[in-house]
Design a protein around this nucleic acid. Sequence first.
DNA 1: GAGCATTTGTTCCTTATTTCACAAATGCTT
DNA 2: AAGCATTTGTGAAATAAGGAACAAATGCTC
Lengths: 226, 226
Amino acid sequence: MAMNSQNGKDPVPIPTLERVTTYLRFLLDLEQSQIDTISSAEVERQTGINAAQFRKDLTHLGQFGKPGVGYNVAELQAQITRVLRMDHEQKVILVGAGNLGSALVGYPGLQEHRLSLVAVFDNNLSKIGRPLWNLEIQDTATLTEVNKVLGAQIAILAVPAPAAQKVADQLVEAGIRAILNFAPVILKLPRNVYVRNVSFLQELAVLSYQLASESLNAPLKKQEKE
Amino acid sequence: MAMNSQNGKDPVPIPTLERVTTYLRFLLDLEQSQIDTISSAEVERQTGINAAQFRKDLTHLGQFGKPGVGYNVAELQAQITRVLRMDHEQKVILVGAGNLGSALVGYPGLQEHRLSLVAVFDNNLSKIGRPLWNLEIQDTATLTEVNKVLGAQIAILAVPAPAAQKVADQLVEAGIRAILNFAPVILKLPRNVYVRNVSFLQELAVLSYQLASESLNAPLKKQEKE
DNA sequence: GAGCATTTGTTCCTTATTTCACAAATGCTT
DNA sequence: AAGCATTTGTGAAATAAGGAACAAATGCTC
Ligand SMILES: NC(=O)c1ccc[n+]([C@@H]2O[C@H](COP(=O)([O-])OP(=O)(O)OC[C@H]3O[C@@H](n4cnc5c(N)ncnc54)[C@H](O)[C@@H]3O)[C@@H](O)[C@H]2O)c1
Ligand SMILES: NC(=O)c1ccc[n+]([C@@H]2O[C@H](COP(=O)([O-])OP(=O)(O)OC[C@H]3O[C@@H](n4cnc5c(N)ncnc54)[C@H](O)[C@@H]3O)[C@@H](O)[C@H]2O)c1
């Protein structure tokens, strides 16, 4: 008797989710600037994201705005935070305390979103036992055991490509349900484990192509103001 | 008198480009394994990307395969490399020699794709002049001047969020045409400058949502084999 | 060298996402 | 409190992306 598809809400499309995190960032900035109301038109002006898109994205999460007025910044921010489940602490573990892994461990941005890095693992004997920021690097061999206590569901994978699949399997074994993967490898995992890949090289390749194709294609558009 | 839209080729869709870099990575692995021919069906089996999708993606770049046989790995790899313009050196500069920036400078993956990090900048006096891997950290104030000589078109932006817009403007001023941005900020730049944003937090937020929504939504699908 | 088993390139259909456009809602002004 | 200027939420239209299906091409077998 409702318009929903299944039992709960219908799933939020990935493109929407990706934008939503952008909105969240933007709203946090607005709060800092003491702005307490914002319209979709203003969002478009400041973020470049189409106003209708913004409004429709929000309908996937619920209703928030007031016609003629706009959106209450604090309220909307809180609501998005809640939907993304970033309103309570979530434990995260990291494997691979190398260059990239070390940078991530020290990154304060995680805390801001209530993501709590609770353990770091590596298999390099000369690293195991050493401190890294406020954590001690642990042996990857103890991963399952350690996470039995911690119960983290999210992991960051920052090991070299050749080791990635094996470590990913270990992570799943240890009860991890979501992996942020930095290794340039396509992980083969059970369907009930979520994976997001981050690839700087991919992004650079896209830029490289765009630069190259522009000189061939672009007949140079009309305007260039901002 | 061809079926093309404009003068050159029609633009490759971004989703295709993103997958293409995955193919490239995959093909390089195959070469390592001495495999010299691959079919789209096999690509699907190993990467999870639909075979028809793979074939269609390639048609955006040209023709490569032989019916009944498949694709020559080395040839396809070379072709993709060429289309992405990663067959010749491209200069890249980086601004922000902090945690993340330092990890990136030391990353050998760039070289593999003929991306040559030629200069690193920072505005922190205690860092300027210091060596970072094989480079010396230079003063951001000299960016325009230095790049007049170098002529890099691609930049990596790894400064704190509050500084990002200002530095991005400087980069454009210095002749940069493509920016890989790590700061959690929406950069406002001329339309003829390409930007790709990398946001770990965004990715983690998506994972967080997926984890959360699953417990509400998922009625648990049928199969789980692999 | 004809038949057969493959596998491509591409057309056509389906699904997803974006954008448009407008009625309904809100609050401000007089 | 009626009119007006905004701005939302949302159906309907437009674009874009994904996937199935198949004719045409290739090489292998006998
Ligand atoms: N550094 C970068 O800027 C960068 C950029 C893009 C992608 N990446 C990718 O991120 C990953 C890590 O990069 P990095 O530069 O930090 O590499 P790194 O070599 O500095 O660090 C890798 C770490 O993983 C550890 N390790 C190796 N095998 C392991 C195992 N089986 N179990 C646990 N730990 C193990 C190593 O001991 C090392 O500490 C790589 O896959 C790389 O391709 C890195
Ligand atoms: N460290 C991470 O794991 C991580 C993860 C995600 C995003 N980020 C983002 O990447 C960026 C860099 O992160 P970080 O951890 O390396 O920070 P950091 O503080 O370690 O490094 C920032 C560097 O930028 C330099 N800098 C500041 N203002 C500058 C300016 N105007 N011109 C030139 N250089 C300037 C600083 O001196 C410092 O060396 C930030 O925007 C951060 O939000 C970092």
